[in-house]
Nucleic acid binder design. Structure first.
Lengths: 215, 215
DNA sequence: CAGCATCCGCTTTGATACTG
DNA sequence: CAGTATCAAAGCGGATGCTG
């Protein structure tokens, strides 16, 4: 009944990391929790992890809890349901996940039209790949309308932050269309001029795109 | 007979990366090849991957070749054996592997005394965790004597490079002892003064340790 | 309904043996 | 040396059942 995920038994940082988060679905669970700072319920996680078997999700959450990556918070007596959050150690996986996401993002399949998509999945690559190139200018916001929910990107003070929460104010730039080309445009790999030809509409201050593109 | 490693089917950079290198042993194979710029033969890889089943190693090498991470170079007609190398795309995994190795390295088990170890496995964490803090000073070298083969660390010009090749000249610092405390001392987590109490002997210019420690 | 646990068929893994 | 072949055991994914 014990669930000890098989260890590589190697005195090596990478092997030890893979002992902890190398199982199938583990890093994707961490991805979900990274974009939910307030924690997530079991069903939230299932929604963000299409294809996961429910028993595997339960197993992995236990494993990650044992590994010190995830903390389960039991609800207060009356009602409510458990909430899962990342520990500090879990959040420390961000650089590794960003690096993997950037590496994998270079090969986004143009075929495979029926792949699952959640707008939330854009948060990590956006924060990893973009930067505020003009930290002294006043902050601006971008609204991205694609997928299952809108995305708000805040640019200012040298930082780029993305979240599925709503903006405080009117966005300076609004991007609407299918996710794949939007990612290309944001990453600067697809020129904004070609947006309409791939079904993406951009309204507002396009200069913001230059401000956030990496040198 | 087709070996399509199960895809997550998610339009997400991280999921795509895991589709390519998320299978068991895959990233450890890349680790081995990263520390062998001249390529490795099948048996070299087996030596550096204790515990891998030979059929799995063959399978993974095929998968990684299909995924564009590894290239197999067949030998010239007379004799010789195939050599496996990383492609450019495979080498591009270095930042992700470094991030994972650093994360995993923070929890090196003090128990598990019978874990496998190869000196070569120190190359990536050393290059990831150390820096040349005095790039204008003349280059220095460190010899690390532990595990199955000696390790040569070159510090200079702002870079820290490690390899299992021999030094060109006499090392400025020699560190001898068991791998675990040596890693701690190099990372600056274990004071050099405590070295002898954990079986580590340090001879030469200890100032080098301050030169390479991260801020 | 949220949050799992159980069962079941299939695939992957790992240990060993064997071959060109 | 560089793998392939075989097979038991574990892991995975899907469906379904149970409990508060």
């Amino acid at each position: 009944m014990i669930r000890v995920s098989r260890s590589y038994g190697q005195l090596c940082g990478l092997a030890l990391a893979l002992d902890a988060i190398g199982d199938r679905w583990s890093l994707l669970i961490v991805r979900e929790l990274l974009t939910r700072p307030d924690g997530a319920r079991y069903t939230d996680l299932r929604e963000g992890l299409p294809g996961v078997a429910t028993n595997l999700l339960a197993d992995r959450l236990r494993d990650l809890e044992t590994g010190g990556v995830v903390r389960r918070e039991e609800p207060r007596p009356p009602v409510a349901t458990p909430v899962f959050r990342l520990t500090d150690r879990g959040r420390a996986l961000l650089p590794a996940i960003e690096a993997l996401a950037v590496w994998g993002g270079e090969r986004v399949p143009t075929t495979d039209a029926d792949a699952e998509f959640r707008t939330r999945w854009m948060v990590i690559p956006i924060e990893a790949m973009l930067t505020d190139g003009r930290p002294d200018e006043p902050p601006v916001t971008i609204a991205i309308r694609t997928g299952d929910e809108p995305l708000a990107v805040s640019v200012g003070g040298g930082d780029v932050r993305a979240s599925t929460a709503a903006h405080d104010r009117e966005p300076d730039l609004v991007i609407t269309g299918p996710a794949k080309p939007i990612l290309g445009i944001i990453a600067g790999k697809l020129p904004a001029a070609a947006a309409s030809s791939v079904g993406v509409s951009i309204t507002g201050d396009r200069g913001v795109l230059e401000r956030i593109a990496r040198g």
